[in-house]
Amino acid sequence: MELIVFLVAAIMVIGGAVGVVAMRNPVHAALSLVLTLFGVAVHFVSMEAHFLAAVQVIVYAGAIVVLFLFVLMLLGVDKAENLRVEPLPVQRPLAAIMGIALVGLVVAAVVDTRETTPAGLGSGIDVATAGVVDGEGGHDANIRQLADSLFSDYVFAFELTSVLLIVAVAGTVLMTRKLREPADDESGE
């Protein structure tokens, strides 16, 4: 059963990713990206990361892809790109070789260390159970454990992310602001 879930979600992820790269129309690429993000959320659920799965759907599929689509519509760049024309003929074969080599290296490393990496080094991840036992388990076990980690060990980094978001928003507003033309100032006076 779990294998079936894995395979279906993996097909979603890979199919969506190929769609992002291969679709000619950027709007279709953004919709393929949603498919990939939902597949990754399914994988998160099957690895007991329930909170991250919810955040993945809300933040990525909800906010980021909508932002992409909004910019696409706003700028009117949703015209289909002609993928046949290739200014640099060697680029695609080189990119394919590099991609296959990258995947091959990483897969080789993963398969090589599959037995040597010990399982269960850490303090363990609480899984959702029917009831709370000694402060562990319960249906919200993942959220409580993540919150314990986030607000104790990483509380300073957590505060810094708020600074990062404020800086990003303020910088973007400043950058995309329409500068008033000097000619308009003079005509207004």
Binding site: A10, V13, I14, A17, V18, V20, V21, T36, H43, Q91, R92, L94, A95, A96, M98, G99, I100, L102, V103, V106, V107, V110, V111
Partner: peptide, 16 residues
Amino acid sequence: VLAAVLFGIGAVGVLV
């Protein structure tokens, strides 16, 4: 392995 394949597709997309 799935994550490696996904990363590879993304990298090729950035290049292409």
